[in-house]
Amino acid sequence: MKDHGAQVHQRASGRRYALEFLAVLIAYGGLLALAGFVVDANPDAWWRYAIAPLPMIPAAYLVFASVRYYRRMDELQQRIALESLAFAFAGTALITFTYGFLDAAGLPRINWWFVWPVMGTLWALGTWLANRRWL
């Protein structure tokens, strides 16, 4: 048994994903700076709404890279990934809707940007719970 083909495979897939993640981070940072600069310089141009979301292009690419990474996982890893996302979905729905009421009651309105940190945190928590359940 010298050959650990599948693990080499999975490790290569993980490495590729890590590289893509890094590339996305760099592209995101660059576009963020660029879009911020352009929008600040043209605060009244109607087309600033087309420029502002440019950093979403690498972000969307990251979603596709994640789907590809998911397809390379084995069946239990896929199950864990799906369960953690489902957990985060439910938690995000509860938290955002609850804050909707607090907003209506008078708390400050929050940019939708900050929905993602909520989602990401719940996702990490869900991954921890799913790992504990299955592994």
């Binding site: 650990h4 084995d74 239990l76 890893q77």
Partner: peptide, 25 residues
């Protein structure tokens, strides 16, 4: 790890099957 290499799954998955936590497809 040997078995996981043969089966094309992760070592954790082999362990989860062995402990009966996960039923394989």
């Amino acid at each position: 790890a040997d078995l996981s290499g043969e089966l094309g799954v992760s070592r954790q998955t082999v362990n989860a099957i062995e402990t009966g936590k996960y039923d394989p497809s």
